[in-house]
Design a binder for these strands. Structure first.
Lengths: 171, 171
DNA sequence: TCAATTTGCTTAGTAAAGCTAATAATTTTT
DNA sequence: AAAAATTATTAGCTTTACTAAGCAAATTGA
């Protein structure tokens, strides 16, 4: 296996472990992983608004509104109309919300931090440099690729021969 | 910001880009990202069953069934009752399903491969070592929580017969 | 100034993806 | 043979996500 594939495989492994683990952690405080992520994000963001959170989370505003509704229903956040722009609503964590965050000390993250901290300084630096390098490799194209990503760009040959089968379904 | 947090942040960035991009790619062939992932997994797995795919995907059997229903409705897979254990259904990609996979050449992955391949050998090695190191740091604890199987345990060539056994199943 | 546009958030409606629990059909075990 | 376990599915529900439409506030421009 060449280095490219091995690297991608390791990345997928990281991704999977992180993903699966996130669920467990969130469930342990009675939230879902997305809700917990949002709560955390709101806490770390200064003057968080639905918009800013949506951008950071990479989802639509409507989605964030729905999520905030749930968090608000559980008294973890409050929405305060901004003094600066009265269209905006500033998202604030309640004490209870903050407590919930503190009650969810991500064990994976803590463990990772612990293990990482135990490494030699030079290795820490190397790992940091590596992930930043990889992130930049990925970022670069995501910007380039996204705008003109269309269906038939490379397709060419493989004309989709739709076999005769069930025609009556939604997708 | 200390190195631990910076590393975690970069990882999150990688995760996010990958995630967002996966959606676009899948949409470009008219599938969702999960459906595409499942299709790919089914293709790579020898004698794939709902169970084995569920384990590899880290979701429940019921979820896989629902996903397979959708892929089957679009004539991308077929289910053939196993000759060995008639409870099982072997998941096979149709020609159309295989074509769909080929039509979805992940541009991010290709681009990443391209950029990665353009790096100096020593840097490739360094990056690979780094992600594997990180993956191992993460894995170590995940094993404690929820041990999962390794991918591709190729259980020998026990079943040479590709079953054309059963053609008569609806839906 | 005041109409037109843009921006920020919400609502409504829909779909995908995930779960658990229950069921049926097979093994496998006792 | 009866009991237990395994495999796939179904049914019903929740969460996450989207788009489209709407309202309210801010900004623009003529």
């Amino acid at each position: 296996m060449d280095r490219t594939n091995a690297t991608l495989t390791a990345l997928r492994r990281i991704l999977r472990v992180t993903e699966l683990h996130g669920k467990d952690v969130a469930r342990s405080v009675g939230l879902t992983s997305v809700q917990l992520r949002l709560l955390k994000l709101a806490h770390e963001t200064k003057d968080a608004t639905a918009k800013s959170l949506a951008v950071k989370l990479g989802v639509s505003q409507a989605t964030v509104t729905a999520l905030l509704d749930k968090l608000a229903a559980r008294c973890m956040i409050e929405r305060h109309i901004s003094c600066v722009d009265r269209r905006q609503k500033i998202i604030c964590l309640t004490d209870f919300g903050i407590a919930a965050l503190n009650d969810a000390p991500d064990p994976m993250q803590r463990n990772f931090a612990h293990r990482f901290g135990a490494l030699e300084e030079w290795e820490q630096s190397m790992l940091l440099a590596a992930v930043e390098r990889i992130a930049s490799l990925l970022d670069a194209e995501s910007l380039r690729v996204a705008p003109f990503l269309t269906v038939g760009e490379i397709a060419g040959e493989c004309q989709p021969i739709t076999p005769d089968c069930d025609e009556s379904q939604d997708q």
